[in-house]
Design a protein around this nucleic acid. Sequence first.
DNA 1: CTGAAAGCGCTAACAA
DNA 2: TTGTTAGCGCTTTCAG
Lengths: 331, 331
Amino acid sequence: MAATIKDIARRAGVSTATVSKVLNRKDSVIGDETRQKVLSLARELNYTPNSLARSLVTRKSHVIGIIVPDILNPYFTELVRSCDDAARLRGYTTLVCNSEGIAEIETAHLTSFGGHRVDGILLAASDVVPDTELLDALRIPVVCMDREIGPLAQLVGIVDTDYRSGAYQATRHLIEKGHTRIAFLSGAPHRSNTQIRLSGYKDALSEAGIAFDPDLIRCKEFQHRFGHQATLDLLDHTSFSAICCMNDMLAIGAMVALRERGKRVPEDCAVIGFDNIYLSPLLEHPLSTVDRRIAHSGRVATDALIDFLDDADRTLTAVTITPTVVSRTTT
Amino acid sequence: MAATIKDIARRAGVSTATVSKVLNRKDSVIGDETRQKVLSLARELNYTPNSLARSLVTRKSHVIGIIVPDILNPYFTELVRSCDDAARLRGYTTLVCNSEGIAEIETAHLTSFGGHRVDGILLAASDVVPDTELLDALRIPVVCMDREIGPLAQLVGIVDTDYRSGAYQATRHLIEKGHTRIAFLSGAPHRSNTQIRLSGYKDALSEAGIAFDPDLIRCKEFQHRFGHQATLDLLDHTSFSAICCMNDMLAIGAMVALRERGKRVPEDCAVIGFDNIYLSPLLEHPLSTVDRRIAHSGRVATDALIDFLDDADRTLTAVTITPTVVSRTTT
DNA sequence: CTGAAAGCGCTAACAA
DNA sequence: TTGTTAGCGCTTTCAG
């Protein structure tokens, strides 16, 4: 059995209260020899405080719950990694859950966060509509990491990306390269996630005097499989010389489809992505994309949450990241 | 404040013990109306058990600690994801930590696992030599996920991959394609991880009557940057027609270097990887590689651990995964 | 400067 | 069938 504060107290001939004080650096009032005795005993017994017991009384778990749709998606892998790094730097541990983009699963995770008494929640809702009632009932501070969500009492931060601008820039980039028939791939069609991006796409088109053609639009989900499938479908039903993908995995899927059909990138068809995941420069054709500063946004979100938790900043933090085009070889 | 068992007890006019019994399905002995009253009250008050308190008394946290070098590496992303899935299926939660491949960091995480009273540990030690003394002192069951580690009292499972066979098969695959000058890229040279693979490589060569040439060997770390750098270096200093990479990220890095130097894959130089990460078929040149059943191994490791924890199987589980070559377009 | 006592929310015998 | 009691390991007033 692991040593407890009691073991130390007994051997040191002091009370557990004293040991606790020493161990928590609340020892300004503690005698020097007592402190030394306790400290050396702690080392000797290989003492590690039981954080369950500690959290129970302090009502602070120093754990942050993170929800993402799927950590396998490189975008979320990077996001989670940067959140975790930022959290550890400030003494917090991270509990990561995958919602699969399914509201019920997200809800279950949120409930479990409540049970584990996490101090705060970092939420990448993506395409799912979170149960805001639950979120409110939980009374746990929340920071949204990828988009706004409905009104929420416990919302203490939003790290938003200017998707409209990103999509606009991507489209414009393609237009400047001379394309006029530009296909558009994105996630769930009715979600703001997609609608906002679509508006940026349309803005760029109309600005250039190009008519919007709904036949060029394919919206369903943010996964490479869909990028692949949609591109094949596009190839079969219409003509175009560029694809504007609303994330990099979609772009990767699109390029696979293009290759299968013998199309060269960018000669026969240009491709641009969105996110700038760390893989995009490593592809055989390094991917042109829209950089959204993934690691930075994770860090900012985490810091905002912890600032709030640690009482450093009790106001709502709202940060909007303006993405920028990174032109590589696929456009 | 979240409702507690006490709140329910008071309103239901019963004792907390009774409430606890109902809520834990130890209610075979509980009166029907009492049960109903408690259950409906629990729902009404939106009761969620405090798992900290529960774990403190039951001495079971239902949390499993996972250590990997870096979750950004797709191999570990997949591994962690499959462990997490398997764990949740059995009622466990997962606490994931990145060791960065640095022993001190791994040690810090292990210590923190002790503090959090995790029930078991899933360890992907990779190139780091774990502090087996600490591990023993912790008295927490451990399953190794990618290789064996030294003698360990608390070791309850090993999921090993037959690296020798994998490297042998990869090399042989290349030889069968007509290559004789085959470069070899791997991680830390003095680690078993690399040495075992190297022996497979050598076996295949000697079997084919090809002399081993140390100039073709580059071992340092398992990251794409090194794959890139090593390939450039190889290109500058020797000649070869194939590269045998001991993980897929190395292969991706190598292919970038090859492209930069105007070499075509596989015409000018064949490349084979190791791991079969989910990205490898998605590359522009789908990567030939050695499949090691990542998700399967994570599942097996997790199940072995939980079997032990749940008392279903108190013997040491030792599984060796035999990898197989997947031939795609780069060889 | 140190200790006694209470209690965080829950479970687990043992009584009743 | 239900309640009483004790206690998990720790922190935190409040006395001494």
